[in-house]
């Protein structure tokens, strides 16, 4: 799949933002006043920024409101609802914490649950696609949830929790890669099932057009996989390993914390690049290309 910068930014940033909102809603750290203002500003900048980035790839952003209508069937529509509900609920909770110095605990819990639900709905947009076997697995939602929770814990300064979550997220990330590598073959899609042709070895002989097309540009992206191995190591080390070590340094202050967050963001961006670039769409079979 084409690793569009807008979707990489969206899944990375909004994951972090909603992850932070989960911790703030649960009262970790129990901040009020100006400190709370800064925490919520960061959380909203990331989550809303991510959501805005995702509208960049729409053909008609001015019709985006229509996306709220199909929540009964569409995960993308459910994501829109969950995101708005989470942002509004946490906004009210933030008002209490910033201006009135109080924590509306039930509201915070609901907001945290809605933030978690938002991340889950985002992950399901990808998980539901049978046409992309690598995404169509149980670990995809777990990867999105664990990565967002680990990033949120880092941003919220919950060092011990962050360390545990980073370790869990790393395990899930490694599992997602190793299961994902086998998914296409397991799903059993081949050029023979795609074309229904039998009686010998089937090979794509001539493409429909000499030029490229939307399908090839959008779904048969092979360039990004060139450095997949190096990028995986980079993503694992920067996204999970280095932050894990940094938060375990005794007396880690803002500097090391900031470094840990920076490393995590860069690592996650690499991970999300791979999430798209390595994902093979079955339509590639019709063009004689896996993915």
């Amino acid at each position: 799949m084409h690793p569009a910068p807008s979707v990489i930014l969206f899944t990375t940033l909004s994951g972090l933002g909603f992850g932070l909102l989960i911790f703030l809603g649960l009262g970790f750290p129990p901040v009020t006043g100006w400190v709370a203002f800064v925490f919520f500003l960061i959380a909203y900048a990331l989550s809303v920024g991510g959501l805005l980035a995702s509208t960049f790839h729409l053909g008609h952003p001015e019709r985006a409101l229509k996306a709220f209508s199909q929540w009964r069937t569409s995960w993308l529509s459910r994501e829109a609802w969950a995101a708005v509900a989470a942002l509004v609920t946490m906004g009210l909770y933030a008002l209490g914490a910033v201006f009135f110095g109080t924590h509306l605990v039930p509201l915070g819990w609901i907001g945290a649950a809605l933030s978690l639900a938002t991340i889950f709905t985002t992950s399901m947009i990808y998980t539901q696609l049978g046409s992309v076997p690598r995404w169509n697995q149980l670990l995809t939602p777990l990867h999105f949830l664990s990565a967002a929770l680990a990033g949120g814990a880092l941003l919220a300064g919950q060092l011990l929790v962050a360390a545990i979550l980073l370790l869990v997220a790393l395990m899930i990330q490694l599992g997602h890669w190793s299961v994902g590598d086998k998914r296409f073959a397991e799903a059993g899609h081949t050029i023979a099932t795609a074309t229904g042709l039998s009686g010998g070895q089937v090979r794509a002989f001539s493409p429909p057009h000499t030029g490229s097309n939307y399908l090839l540009r959008e779904m048969v992206h092979v360039v990004g996989r060139k450095h997949a191995r190096k990028l995986r190591i980079l993503a694992a080390l920067l996204g999970y390993g280095l932050p894990l070590v940094l938060v375990l340094v005794p007396g880690a202050g803002h500097l090391l914390g900031g470094l840990a967050i920076l490393a995590h963001v860069v690592g996650m961006a690499a991970s999300r690049w791979l999430f798209f670039a390595e994902a093979e769409h079955v339509v590639g079979l019709y063009y004689g290309k896996r993915g």
Binding site: H60, A67, L215, E218, H281, V283
Partner: peptide, 24 residues
């Protein structure tokens, strides 16, 4: 009603849907 998000083209295993680059 189409916002041009492209998700339906992703969901189609057959490559039957194409986003028009001019109309969006």
């Amino acid at each position: 009603d189409c916002i041009g998000c492209g998700l339906c083209a992703w969901a189609c295993p057959y490559g039957a849907r194409e986003m028009d680059q001019t109309a969006g």
